[in-house]
Amino acid sequence: MTTAATTNPNRYRRWDGELNRGNRAWLVIVVTGIRLALKERKTRTLVMTVSGVALGNCIILYVLSLLELVTGTEQGRAILEFVRAFLRVDISGVTRIEEYREILWRVLFLLVIKVELFWVLLTVSKVGPGLIAHDLRHRALPIYFAKPVTPLTYVLGKWIVVAAFVAMVVLVPNLFSMIVGVLITGGLHTWGQTLGLGWDLLVSGLLICVTSGAIVLALSSLTSDHRYVTVGWLAVCLLPIFAQGILDESLPAGSTLGWLGCISLRDNVMTVTDWLFGMRGLWEASTLPTEAFAESMLKPVRPICAITVLSGWVVCAMLVTYWRVVTFSRSAANV
């Protein structure tokens, strides 16, 4: 009797599997990009610590829900008195807090977003700079473009990596605290009232994702040294704010230069968010008195200008990125 023997020398073996026909390469780029970024301890820490903001947000929402419970009672009035003294806002006309639930929540989330922008600044400066710069430095682009990957797929994938991290520090904590807030403040009944806010949070979060992603990616494609990108990103975000601050100090009150606000990324994002949240309309519709605190929340809103500036930023950034990637993929072979 003979038995079939197999030997398995280490020769090259062909593979007869099927390649995926669809273009899913962007997803692979996204997943790998996120995995690599999360290997960094600092990035993980940043993503973790933002949950502290979300937690604070939840606690305030909880306090508000408690206030709603005690509103109308003696105890409630005492608390309101305390709040009035604390905020120096005349809210003597306010008796039932749930009437002002939406506006209070909106004010709260607006503040939280402002805080979270700080996390966006840091997280993007950790995650974004290397995304394309490293590939340029190591001349890895030919690897991508020898596979069925188009420059568009590549840029899209890298963009989504940044956007995902921004979502992790803005969108996710906001939506999470929103849901928690709804659940502890009267459950599903509250859902209908605050649904609009949920949408606004989603849209404003996506806005931040898209703009920050596009800009850092453009910076990253311009140089092969990621440190320059980090500096560039911080400069783009902070310089207009600092400059505005200095000008505000040095110029006589009332003659502030508006154009700096026009190019500042943060100001524009906040303007659009303000407009999205519809603060002015809500405020005017309410019976709350317009005090100094409220005035500061209600800077003149010029959404069209801000949206134009932001989309200009994004379009320019994407064009720069795409142009750099395409020229590099072509020239890399000729060096």
Partner: peptide, 15 residues
């Protein structure tokens, strides 16, 4: 590109 492979001259690694 589904049917070819390319080994470039440069490092081409992904850190």
């Amino acid at each position: 590109r589904r049917r070819v492979g390319f080994v470039p001259e440069n490092d081409c690694l992904i850190p």
